Amino acid sequence: MQFSYLVTWVDADASARIAADDLARITAIVDATPALRRSRLYTPESADDYYTQDGPSPIFAMQLDYDTVFDLEAPIAAGGHLQALAAAGLPSLAGCRVEQQAMLRRPFPVADAHACVPEGALPCQFLVHYPGHAIDFDEWINYYLTHHPQIMFDFPGVREIEIFTRIDWLDAMPWTRVHYMQRNKLMFDSAQAITEAMHSPVRHAMRQDFEQFPPFTGSNIHHPMAARTTYFAR
Protein backbone atom coordinates (compact mmCIF):
# COMPACT_ATOMS: atom_id res chain seq x y z
CA MET A 1 0.00 0.00 0.00
CA GLN A 2 2.56 2.53 -1.12
CA PHE A 3 0.47 4.87 -3.31
CA SER A 4 -2.54 6.94 -2.23
CA TYR A 5 -5.23 8.74 -4.19
CA LEU A 6 -6.44 11.66 -2.08
CA VAL A 7 -9.66 13.58 -2.79
CA THR A 8 -11.15 16.43 -0.76
CA TRP A 9 -14.59 18.06 -1.03
CA VAL A 10 -14.75 21.61 0.37
CA ASP A 11 -18.11 23.31 0.93
CA ALA A 12 -18.43 27.09 1.35
CA ASP A 13 -20.89 26.43 4.18
CA ALA A 14 -18.85 25.39 7.23
CA SER A 15 -21.88 23.72 8.79
CA ALA A 16 -22.60 21.51 5.77
CA ARG A 17 -22.38 17.74 6.22
CA ILE A 18 -22.48 14.82 3.82
CA ALA A 19 -25.84 13.02 3.77
CA ALA A 20 -25.98 9.41 4.94
CA ASP A 21 -27.34 8.29 1.56
CA ASP A 22 -24.49 9.99 -0.28
CA LEU A 23 -21.91 8.46 2.05
CA ALA A 24 -23.45 5.02 1.51
CA ARG A 25 -23.34 5.46 -2.26
CA ILE A 26 -19.70 6.57 -2.18
CA THR A 27 -18.83 3.63 0.05
CA ALA A 28 -20.43 1.13 -2.33
CA ILE A 29 -18.53 2.54 -5.33
CA VAL A 30 -15.22 2.72 -3.47
CA ASP A 31 -15.56 -0.79 -2.03
CA ALA A 32 -15.84 -2.22 -5.57
CA THR A 33 -12.69 -0.49 -6.85
CA PRO A 34 -10.31 -2.98 -8.51
CA ALA A 35 -6.92 -3.51 -6.81
CA LEU A 36 -7.83 -1.25 -3.88
CA ARG A 37 -6.02 -2.33 -0.70
CA ARG A 38 -7.36 0.14 1.86
CA SER A 39 -9.89 2.97 1.90
CA ARG A 40 -10.29 5.80 4.36
CA LEU A 41 -13.42 7.93 4.23
CA TYR A 42 -13.22 11.14 6.28
CA THR A 43 -15.93 13.32 7.82
CA PRO A 44 -15.42 16.55 9.80
CA GLU A 45 -14.40 16.67 13.44
CA SER A 46 -13.32 19.44 15.80
CA ALA A 47 -10.13 19.62 17.85
CA ASP A 48 -7.86 22.35 19.19
CA ASP A 49 -4.22 22.91 18.31
CA TYR A 50 -2.06 25.16 20.48
CA TYR A 51 -0.43 26.89 17.49
CA THR A 52 -2.88 26.83 14.58
CA GLN A 53 -6.54 27.52 13.90
CA ASP A 54 -7.16 26.65 10.25
CA GLY A 55 -10.93 26.83 10.21
CA PRO A 56 -13.53 24.08 9.77
CA SER A 57 -12.59 20.75 8.27
CA PRO A 58 -13.72 19.82 4.74
CA ILE A 59 -17.18 18.31 4.37
CA PHE A 60 -15.69 15.04 3.08
CA ALA A 61 -12.39 13.48 2.01
CA MET A 62 -11.09 10.07 1.02
CA GLN A 63 -7.78 8.24 0.83
CA LEU A 64 -7.56 5.20 -1.44
CA ASP A 65 -4.39 3.09 -1.09
CA TYR A 66 -2.84 0.85 -3.73
CA ASP A 67 0.26 -1.29 -4.15
CA THR A 68 1.34 0.32 -7.43
CA VAL A 69 0.83 3.61 -9.23
CA PHE A 70 -0.63 1.64 -12.16
CA ASP A 71 -3.33 0.23 -9.87
CA LEU A 72 -4.06 3.77 -8.70
CA GLU A 73 -4.29 5.24 -12.20
CA ALA A 74 -6.52 2.58 -13.75
CA PRO A 75 -9.78 3.47 -11.93
CA ILE A 76 -9.33 7.22 -12.51
CA ALA A 77 -8.55 6.86 -16.22
CA ALA A 78 -11.17 7.54 -18.89
CA GLY A 79 -13.76 4.79 -18.47
CA GLY A 80 -12.23 3.76 -15.13
CA HIS A 81 -14.25 2.50 -12.19
CA LEU A 82 -14.13 5.73 -10.18
CA GLN A 83 -15.66 7.74 -13.00
CA ALA A 84 -18.92 6.44 -11.50
CA LEU A 85 -18.12 8.42 -8.37
CA ALA A 86 -17.64 11.64 -10.31
CA ALA A 87 -20.95 11.03 -12.13
CA ALA A 88 -22.92 9.93 -9.06
CA GLY A 89 -24.79 13.22 -8.60
CA LEU A 90 -24.43 13.39 -4.82
CA PRO A 91 -26.84 16.12 -3.64
CA SER A 92 -25.12 16.97 -0.35
CA LEU A 93 -21.78 17.46 -2.14
CA ALA A 94 -23.18 19.49 -5.04
CA GLY A 95 -21.37 22.79 -5.43
CA CYS A 96 -18.29 21.65 -3.52
CA ARG A 97 -14.78 22.43 -4.70
CA VAL A 98 -13.11 19.06 -5.28
CA GLU A 99 -9.33 18.62 -5.15
CA GLN A 100 -7.39 15.49 -6.06
CA GLN A 101 -3.79 14.37 -5.75
CA ALA A 102 -1.91 11.09 -6.02
CA MET A 103 1.06 10.68 -3.68
CA LEU A 104 3.61 8.22 -2.36
CA ARG A 105 2.63 7.04 1.13
CA ARG A 106 5.39 6.65 3.71
CA PRO A 107 4.35 5.00 7.00
CA PHE A 108 6.48 5.61 10.11
CA PRO A 109 6.58 3.63 13.37
CA VAL A 110 4.58 4.49 16.48
CA ALA A 111 5.04 3.30 20.05
CA ASP A 112 1.53 1.81 20.33
CA ALA A 113 -0.63 1.26 17.25
CA HIS A 114 -3.49 -0.34 19.20
CA ALA A 115 -6.46 2.02 19.05
CA CYS A 116 -8.80 2.35 22.04
CA VAL A 117 -11.97 3.60 20.39
CA PRO A 118 -15.34 3.16 22.11
CA GLU A 119 -17.84 0.94 20.33
CA GLY A 120 -19.80 2.94 17.80
CA ALA A 121 -17.21 5.73 17.65
CA LEU A 122 -14.54 6.43 15.04
CA PRO A 123 -10.84 7.22 15.44
CA CYS A 124 -9.76 10.67 14.39
CA GLN A 125 -6.96 11.76 12.07
CA PHE A 126 -5.18 15.09 11.99
CA LEU A 127 -4.80 15.81 8.27
CA VAL A 128 -2.04 18.27 7.39
CA HIS A 129 -0.95 19.59 4.03
CA TYR A 130 1.72 22.00 2.83
CA PRO A 131 0.28 23.91 -0.13
CA GLY A 132 3.28 26.14 -0.83
CA HIS A 133 6.72 25.76 -2.31
CA ALA A 134 10.20 25.20 -0.89
CA ILE A 135 13.08 27.24 -2.22
CA ASP A 136 15.04 23.98 -2.43
CA PHE A 137 12.54 21.12 -2.31
CA ASP A 138 15.18 18.37 -2.09
CA GLU A 139 16.71 20.03 0.98
CA TRP A 140 13.27 20.64 2.48
CA ILE A 141 11.93 17.10 2.12
CA ASN A 142 15.19 15.55 3.30
CA TYR A 143 15.04 17.64 6.46
CA TYR A 144 11.34 16.95 7.04
CA LEU A 145 11.54 13.18 6.65
CA THR A 146 14.63 12.82 8.83
CA HIS A 147 13.42 15.09 11.66
CA HIS A 148 9.68 15.68 11.93
CA PRO A 149 8.15 12.14 12.07
CA GLN A 150 10.76 11.21 14.67
CA ILE A 151 9.25 13.88 16.93
CA MET A 152 5.68 12.82 16.03
CA PHE A 153 6.59 9.40 17.48
CA ASP A 154 6.54 10.99 20.96
CA PHE A 155 2.98 12.35 20.74
CA PRO A 156 0.86 10.80 23.51
CA GLY A 157 -1.72 8.45 22.03
CA VAL A 158 -0.58 8.61 18.40
CA ARG A 159 -1.65 5.38 16.64
CA GLU A 160 -0.34 5.95 13.13
CA ILE A 161 2.00 8.30 11.28
CA GLU A 162 1.89 8.63 7.49
CA ILE A 163 3.84 11.11 5.37
CA PHE A 164 2.87 11.66 1.72
CA THR A 165 5.26 12.99 -0.91
CA ARG A 166 4.68 14.07 -4.49
CA ILE A 167 4.59 11.94 -7.61
CA ASP A 168 3.51 12.45 -11.22
CA TRP A 169 0.28 10.67 -12.11
CA LEU A 170 -2.29 10.28 -14.88
CA ASP A 171 -6.04 10.74 -14.55
CA ALA A 172 -9.19 11.70 -16.42
CA MET A 173 -11.30 12.77 -13.45
CA PRO A 174 -13.24 16.06 -13.72
CA TRP A 175 -11.72 17.45 -10.52
CA THR A 176 -9.01 20.01 -9.82
CA ARG A 177 -5.52 18.56 -9.62
CA VAL A 178 -3.41 19.99 -6.78
CA HIS A 179 0.31 19.60 -6.25
CA TYR A 180 0.79 20.11 -2.54
CA MET A 181 4.45 19.51 -1.78
CA GLN A 182 3.76 17.25 1.17
CA ARG A 183 1.03 15.91 3.48
CA ASN A 184 0.99 14.04 6.74
CA LYS A 185 -1.70 12.25 8.73
CA LEU A 186 -1.65 11.35 12.41
CA MET A 187 -4.20 8.89 13.79
CA PHE A 188 -5.55 9.21 17.34
CA ASP A 189 -8.37 7.52 19.24
CA SER A 190 -10.58 10.63 19.18
CA ALA A 191 -10.75 14.36 18.55
CA GLN A 192 -10.16 14.88 22.27
CA ALA A 193 -6.96 12.83 22.01
CA ILE A 194 -5.82 15.13 19.20
CA THR A 195 -6.48 18.18 21.39
CA GLU A 196 -4.50 16.66 24.26
CA ALA A 197 -1.59 15.78 21.97
CA MET A 198 -1.58 19.24 20.40
CA HIS A 199 -1.31 20.83 23.85
CA SER A 200 1.45 18.49 25.03
CA PRO A 201 5.18 19.35 25.30
CA VAL A 202 5.71 17.35 22.09
CA ARG A 203 3.70 19.96 20.18
CA HIS A 204 6.16 22.62 21.30
CA ALA A 205 9.06 20.44 20.15
CA MET A 206 7.29 20.10 16.79
CA ARG A 207 6.99 23.88 16.54
CA GLN A 208 10.67 24.34 17.33
CA ASP A 209 11.55 21.89 14.58
CA PHE A 210 9.12 23.62 12.18
CA GLU A 211 11.06 26.84 12.72
CA GLN A 212 14.22 25.02 11.57
CA PHE A 213 12.72 23.91 8.23
CA PRO A 214 14.58 25.02 5.13
CA PRO A 215 12.85 28.11 3.65
CA PHE A 216 9.41 27.58 2.10
CA THR A 217 6.23 29.51 1.40
CA GLY A 218 2.62 28.67 2.19
CA SER A 219 2.82 27.41 5.79
CA ASN A 220 0.64 24.34 6.56
CA ILE A 221 -3.05 23.54 7.07
CA HIS A 222 -4.45 21.24 9.78
CA HIS A 223 -7.88 19.56 9.84
CA PRO A 224 -9.22 16.91 12.26
CA MET A 225 -11.47 14.31 10.63
CA ALA A 226 -13.15 11.09 11.73
CA ALA A 227 -11.86 8.10 9.76
CA ARG A 228 -13.78 5.09 8.45
CA THR A 229 -11.18 2.49 7.40
CA THR A 230 -11.76 -0.63 5.30
CA TYR A 231 -9.09 -3.16 4.24
CA PHE A 232 -9.38 -5.30 1.12
CA ALA A 233 -7.66 -8.61 0.35
CA ARG A 234 -7.22 -8.53 -3.42
Rank of each mutant, 00 (worst) to 15 (best):
A86N: 00
Q150R: 12
A28H: 12
D13M: 08
F3N: 02
P56I: 10
A74E: 01
I151V: 15
A87L: 12
A12N: 14
V128K: 03
A24W: 03
Y130T: 11
M62P: 05
R207N: 12
F126W: 14
L93W: 01
W140C: 05
Q53K: 15
Y231K: 08
T176Q: 07
A113H: 04
Y5I: 09
E73L: 07
T217G: 09
Y5L: 15
V117Y: 06
H199T: 09
A12E: 10
S4D: 02
T27S: 14
P215F: 07
S4P: 11
F155V: 07
I76G: 02
V7G: 03
D54Q: 03
P149A: 07
C116H: 15
A12F: 04
A205E: 00
A197Y: 05
D22V: 01
G120I: 09
A134E: 02
F108R: 01
F232E: 00
L145S: 14
N142L: 09
F232L: 09
D13G: 09
G218Y: 10
M225E: 07
A12S: 11
A86R: 00
Q2W: 08
D71L: 10
L93C: 03
G132Q: 11
A226N: 13
G80M: 05
F155Y: 08
P156F: 07
G120M: 04
Q100W: 02
D168Y: 04
H147M: 10
P131L: 11
P56R: 07
E119A: 12
D209S: 09
